[in-house]
Amino acid sequence: MSDVPLRSIPPAPDSCSPQGASCGCPLRAFVPLTLRLTLGSLLIFSGWLKLGISSFGGTLSTIDPQTVLYAIKGFQIPWLSDQPNLMAFLAFAVPWVELITGVALVLGLWTRAAAIVVALTMVGFTAGIIGIVARGLDVKCPCFGAMKFICGAEIGTCHILRNTGFFLAAVVIAKMGHGALGLDGFLNRKA
């Protein structure tokens, strides 16, 4: 019998760990990376366009929270339409949600949490858009400020499909994790 204490043997690493960064599966590493960089960039872009802080010398067609407020009211969401202060708050908060989750996704920091928030946000946005389409309202979407991305300004089916795409991307990121080059992976290794 040896007196040398047995060292615990660490389990063999899962080569396809959802954490992805150190795994051997390229798909698990680069699919989330691609999705979070794409989705995160778009969220940063759309959030910034709505904050009205800077258009970088007129380079970007930004709008301000006042315009976002008008758009929110244009959705004519029952109950919310009677809460002007809450709508005004949302006009400021929604762009920040997009911006912060976008930054988190790009950095790969708290990736799954950010992806879940994005997915829930997209569910909310899409529900509102479906309500608009179903009621036949003519509302312009400030989704990307005064700029158009894939869809035109008038809210319609295109916006539903686009948001569904964003939602699915967020779900995939939430399922697969940060993938390659994420701060989450760096912090996990450090821990």
Partner: peptide, 10 residues
């Protein structure tokens, strides 16, 4: 954080 930033911005 987002709500806080929004509130501060407001």
């Amino acid at each position: 954080m987002a709500l806080g930033a929004g509130g501060l911005h407001m």
